[in-house]
Each structure stands twice: as C-alpha cells, then as structure tokens.
Design a protein around this nucleic acid. Sequence first.
DNA 1: CGATTCCTTGAAGGTTGTCAACGTTGGTGG
DNA 2: CCACCAACGTTGACAACCTTCAAGGAATCG
Lengths: 230, 230
Amino acid sequence: MNDPVRLRDELVLGRRRLRTIFSSASPRLLEAGELFVGADFSNRIYYLRAGWACQIRDLANSRRAILDVYLPGDVIGIDTAVRARPLEHILTLTPAIVAGILAEDALIELMADPPIALYITCLLGQRQRRMDRLLAAISCLDARGRLAIMLLDFYKRLRRRKLISAPIYNLPLTQVQIGNYLGLTAAHINRVLRSLRSEQIVNVEKHSVIILNLERLAILAQKRAATRPL
Amino acid sequence: MNDPVRLRDELVLGRRRLRTIFSSASPRLLEAGELFVGADFSNRIYYLRAGWACQIRDLANSRRAILDVYLPGDVIGIDTAVRARPLEHILTLTPAIVAGILAEDALIELMADPPIALYITCLLGQRQRRMDRLLAAISCLDARGRLAIMLLDFYKRLRRRKLISAPIYNLPLTQVQIGNYLGLTAAHINRVLRSLRSEQIVNVEKHSVIILNLERLAILAQKRAATRPL
DNA sequence: CGATTCCTTGAAGGTTGTCAACGTTGGTGG
DNA sequence: CCACCAACGTTGACAACCTTCAAGGAATCG
C-alpha cells in the first residue's frame, strides 16, 4: 500500500531500462542547425545525449513556431511515435549527440515492459507540463514576462540535471529563434533584452545568460505589464 | 512484420479495455461551471462521457489561461497522473457526466497491460498535438486566424467523433472563455466575430456556430493579416 | 578578408488591450 | 406576471504593445 514509493521505484527502474536500450543504439553526431531527416531519422525515438535541439512547426504564412526546446538528457519523439507522419520537425541548436531507436518496431515492445511504459508516460507528462507553462505564458504575459519565464525555465531545467550550479548558462538560441519560441519578433526580443540588462535583472549577450537578480526575474515571470500600477 | 496492422490492433484492444475499466466506475453528474475538486476528484483519471470541460491555469496576475478543451469521449488527467499535485484544474463548460478512476492506485496496473499502455501513449500524443496546434496558432496568427483555427478544430473533432455531421455545432464557451483560450480579450473576440459574420464566413451567436464558408475559414487559419497583401 | 548571418536601432503604423458604458438575456422571487 | 438581478454580450475612444521595414554595425566562418 506504499504507493508513492512503489511508483517512484517503478519509475527509476523504467528510466534505467530505457537508458540501457538507448545506450545499445549507436550514437550519432549532428552539427548545429541540422534537421532530423532521412532514413536514419524517420519515425524514431531519440535520446539527446549532448547538445540542444528544438521542435519546430512551419506555418503556411512562412512563419515558424518553436514548440519545445530539448536539453541534454531529454527524450525526443515519443509523442509522435504512434502517428506515422510527423508534421513537426526536430532541429539541432548546437552540435549534438543523439541515440535513436526505431519507433514503430520498438514502441510495442517498449510498452510491453510496465516500468518503461510508466516512465514513458511520466516523460510525456513532463513535456506536457512544459508546454502548459509556455502556452500560459504566451497567452497571458507580455514580452518581458515571457522572456523571464523562458530564462527561468531553462535555468531550472539545467540545474535539475546538474548541468549548471550558478545562475549562469549558455543559451544557444538566436534572437530570431527566441522570437519564434515566444511568439514575438526578433526586434522586440532585442529591445526587451536591452531593457532587462539596463535594469540589472538579467544579462543575455552572445548566447550567454547571467541572471543578476533572480527574485525580480521571478516576479516578472508572474506579472504582466500594467498601464497603471495596481 | 506487419507492424502498422499490429499497432492498430493493439490500439483498438487497449481502447476497448480502458473503456471497460471506465465503465465499471460509477459515473458522476456535474453541473456547468463546476470544478473537479474534492475527495472524489483528487488525483484521478476521467472519462468524459458527456458534456464539455476544459483545463485552466490561473496566473498570479489574476489572468486565466484555458490550456485545453475536452469534448465528449475524451480522457482527462493522464498527464498529471504521475505528478502528485496538479497545478491545473478541470472545469466543466456544460453539464457533464464523468467516470473517474484513482490515478495513483490504477496507473501502475494500467501500464502493466501493454495494449492499454500503448493506447494511453497514443492519447497523450493526441493531446500533445492539439496543444502543438494551439501553441503554433497563438504564436504565429492574429486574432482572426486563431479564431478560425479554434472553430475548425472543434468542428473536426466533433465530426471525427460523429457527434455532428453538418458544419453546425454548439459551442458552450463564453466570449471571455474564448479569449482565455486564444490569448485575447473578450472585447476583441467580439469584434472579430462580428467581422467574420459580416463577411459571411462563420456565424457565432448564442453558443451556436454555423460555418458558412469552410474554404475561406480554412484559408484564414493559415494566414496572418498582412499590412500589405503579399 | 569577403560573405553571410546575427545583432542593433529608429520611425511609423497596426493590432490588440483597457476602460467605461449600455444593451441583452435568463433566472428568481414577489 | 412583472420587477429585479447577475452574467454575458456589444460598442466606442484611446493608449500601449508590438510589428514592420529599413539600414547599418558586429561577429563568425570559410
């Protein structure tokens, strides 16, 4: 009846097993700005061993949305594994090392292993919650708030993975890409970054983020600009 | 080696089994505008037998985002099942009938049944793709495009479930809620709906949607307003 | 060191938010 | 049956945020 413990144990077990499967796949090195296309990439599930990547969707009006950003250690493509033809594409943001397994072959087998199935559900839930946060941010916040959310989000995710310890990290997104991620234009991203820098809240320069005032950044991530203070 | 067929068969089997489990749970009747809270609702997975519901997230600045809208036949809450404390809440939009099973008890058991596990992964993928579309729409499209996407999306989902046949349906969202869903204000929703009506594209009045020109609506859902035509 | 991409910045205009007021609707109780 | 109330819808004026466009500067890479 110790459900939480059992759940946690199962998840740990599932993670370990899935990692083992990925480690048996031959890793592949990708350059920055490379799309996951071709025979080696169609319909696969990937483990992102190193580097950053993102999921993009291009609209008919020649606009691009970046729907999600993947960090080292993320699993990519489970959600599209059941569906044959993915509308979205994966793009590396940095040189990256990925290990991929064939989805159609493997998925039934993967789900036949209960701990792995549970862990995969957990991973899908995590991704869902990431998108929940992003969607809520884009729906409700202005440009300052959205940037604050994004910078804090990457900070927390990197810290949870123990990839950083201080509030300083490398952000391999161009301003155009940040704009695509947050639903804004690069010009406006630039202006807001400048104002955040001048207020000594966060310094984003040349792909390097230095959070100067974590508290004020967190406040920004909650509030929307008000024409008049409340 | 006939993988697609086997995958489909497994999915059908998983759906049937999950439905059976839900049908053994005692259904519950909810009024419109009721939150899924209380002992009967904490940490559960639901099957929405009848009625509409939505997932909401309130921000610190007293803004509300509607992250997803559920139609009859949808399964709700799998993504939050692994996580103990859900930040989001479920709200009925109409009177509804739901059947819920305890997530913490059941999830491990559910995932121990491979077809069910596979089907659940499929459901999570579907939800993910819904949110992908919404996020891309809010990121890239103006108010007309977002409304077009939303109205078409509900139309397609209802038709796929065979809940409607003609491009006419009941939309139990107030204009404030539509605004929360699309990241706009009710006042602006009102303006855009009026203009769409005057152009004989779609008629939205008193919770009833009548698509007059499906083709032009689909075009709107792809384009963003340009200051000058391309 | 040439070329490409990215960053930066300004001016002008458009889309959308804010606010306030009023109209409409549906339910409730006298 | 009618008066009342609350929630929702409607509309206009104005301001704010953001986009668009354009151009020049900086950085990176072969």
